[in-house]
């Protein structure tokens, strides 16, 4: 009997203790909590330092995608209108964010490390149409020393589609 009342009082004491402690809530839209380095959020299409797009339109990401969320349509590069090194570039690149499961397989499949899942997780939209992220929305800004695509380049320089890369560590 006495012990029961003591236990009840102890329970009350615990809640009262927490009443005087600061809440753990992070006020989200004002304060954003940083995500982990390897967090898989919205995709980004990367560029080389000179501004050329990394994506060569090979569709390996689309093939690797288990949710069939990616659609790529390739077109030919010329030296007058060059988007990416090599023969072809992605004329259309669309990811349906309603289908994407953020598994990162596209990232693994990409031979040029063009597509990377970055840290943006605020992917809400009002209708299904705006769930499809197009190339303009996915591609990163041109680097400071680079030029925007399409670039006019000297013939015979950017013939190799896949750059020399180190082995992954």
């Amino acid at each position: 009997m006495f012990e029961t009342i003591l236990e009840l009082a102890r329970g009350m004491g615990i809640t009262l203790k927490h009443f005087f402690q600061p809440p753990v809530t992070i006020q989200y839209p004002e304060i954003k909590r940083p995500v982990r380095n390897r967090f898989k959020g919205r995709h980004e299409l990367k560029r080389y330092d000179n501004g050329l797009e990394r994506c060569i339109g090979c569709s390996l990401c689309a093939a690797a995608c288990p949710a069939d969320a990616i659609f790529v349509e390739a077109a030919e590069n010329t030296d007058e209108e060059r988007y990416s090194p090599g023969e072809r570039y992605a004329r259309v690149y669309e990811i349906n964010m309603l289908r994407c499961i953020f598994c990162g397989f596209c990232e693994d499949a990409c031979p040029t490390q063009a597509i990377v899942l970055e840290h943006n997780y605020e992917l809400s939209f009002y209708d299904r149409q705006s769930a499809i992220y197009t190339k303009d929305m996915l591609i990163v800004d041109v680097p400071i020393n680079g030029r925007p695509t399409p670039q006019t380049v000297e013939p015979g320089v950017f013939t190799k589609a896949i750059p020399e890369m180190e082995n992954p560590k």
Partner: peptide, 10 residues
């Protein structure tokens, strides 16, 4: 408010 503070919420 009180319930929230006792549950470490705002």
């Amino acid at each position: 408010k009180v319930l929230a503070r006792m549950q470490a919420r705002v």
